[in-house]
Amino acid sequence: MQHPDYTVEELMSVLVSREIRDKETVAVGTLSPVPAAGAILAKLTHAPEAELLIWMIREFWPFSEGVKEFFDLAQRGKVDLFFLGGAQVDRYANTNLHVIGDYEKPKVRLPGGAGTGTLYYTVPRVILFTTDHHPKSFVEHVDFVTGAGQSPPEVYRQGKASKCLTPLCVLSYIEEKGEFVLESVHPGITVEKVLENTGFSLEVPDQATETVPPSEEELEVLRSQVKEKIRQAYPHFVKRCIR
């Protein structure tokens, strides 16, 4: 499944980078090497004036009061884009970082949501990402709603999911439908493979395309400057996933 020219993590980092607009304030939380790499790649290429807030990377973390200071900033509406991971993601853009199975008797206990339960509401644009794509991770309904794709109208909410990046494809969230549809499949991956590995009936619009592969420039910057900047925070990721 691995592409000869790049790893799937490199491709996903490039896809993150392309989502970032210049001058945006972009934040990356804990255990998020792909968004961290992508955000730095964007800043070093097309978004030099993006303000990056990347937890655990000193160069991009201006706060001194732990993550609380960051949550406060997000609550003020000052963070434009954030990335949320999920062990499970469902059709309706809910994420699960709590348990697989029943909450009282879980099959797997996951690490928990950290800021997911509020950042999904306070940040106007949220991109979901997953490190695998199979029928048990892409489901009709998550086993536990850590991050809610939808919420009642009387609750403060600045935005919703915009996309979900997976190792196989890009899903795009359609606000009117309240669910994900297929946007593009990664090079070398078929639509059938995506559908087989998705645990709900995924709509494939006519305009679904192939994901534009990383350019030589994107890979070059990723494998040199970006790699160095994330090495200390993500040594394992750099070793295994960046060429």
Binding site: G117, T118, L119, Y120, Y121, T122, V145, T146, P152, V155
Partner: peptide, 13 residues
Amino acid sequence: PVRGIIGTGYMHI
């Protein structure tokens, strides 16, 4: 007081 959370599983547990 916290913004968000309503609509998540936190409110059940």
